[in-house]
Amino acid sequence: MPRKNRRAEDEPQQPLTMPQSAAPLWALVPGVDVRRVSSEKPYRCPGCDLEVRPGSWHLVVIPQDAPDERRHWHEHCWRVELNSTRGRSR
């Protein structure tokens, strides 16, 4: 049966004017959705704690279990975050 009341997009709800494209393959890991975005709003990157400048292309990382916890990362910082966990031995 066709579904009614489908939301335009599930989480996150972002303005339609925001340009988006698919994230690079290296950025995709299980447990999160990753998208490449650019926005007029400034964000704080959790990797380096510096600003993601308005208008710059960057990644939004959305944990599947907690979409509210989505964060905007510099591409480089997300790469560093993944590399710091990948293959690390404790």
Binding site: G31, P46, G47, V61, P63, D65, R71, E81
Partner: peptide, 10 residues
């Protein structure tokens, strides 16, 4: 099976 202790980077 993989406890999600914190969101990535946080």
């Amino acid at each position: 099976l993989g406890y999600p202790l914190h969101p990535p980077g946080k």
